[in-house]
Amino acid sequence: MEGSLWDLIVIFFKTGALTFGGGYAMVPLLSAELVPTYVSGPEMQTMIALAQMTPGPVGLNTATFVGYQQAGFLGAFLCTFVLAIPGFVASTLVSCFKEAFQSSKAVVWTLSGIRPLVVGLIAAVVFFFADGSILSCPIANLWRSGGSALEVSWRGLLIFAVVCVMEWKWKPSVLVTLSVSGILGFLLFGFVC
């Protein structure tokens, strides 16, 4: 257990150091490392969804969840803390050398590559969340089987469509959106045959 807790800490530190763009940008990095060795895909998705519904930053909340699940209170504390450290250190350093940082071309150049990449990474996360809730086949397998293994859950698709309409027309708060999704999920998956 000691060994894997250390590995977890390294994972969260790495993620904290390489995430640019907040919130969702952290998901691809975390999922790549945690799934399927530490948590299953569906578990990860659920934790991230819960991390969004609760107060506080998504990344920190996810770290607390995963850390707790893997190694109790100590795990939760260490993973959360370690995730915050790179940003804290970077912010403090930058505060000391503000002018140098703001006029640095190297920073702008490096970020010019990372920002668009992150858009692509998060687009992939859409499929990560679809896996299991809307689609019944991991995406990687799709390519190999030529689409024949694809199964679409009409219930998941319906909820997806409803949220799309909500986002498009009303842009409600995260809490509203996820509450509606949860209620619909309860009704559709819980009762409808």
């Binding site: 569906p42 819960l50 687009a123 859409v126 997806f160 949220v163 799309c164 999704s181 009704l187 998956f189």
Partner: peptide, 25 residues
Amino acid sequence: YLAGVFLGVRAGVCAMILFAVIRMG
């Protein structure tokens, strides 16, 4: 009962992220 809730939430998050990606893009 909770399993259904979580499935629904995951599908909902999927849509939310899609819109976030479009905005970011």
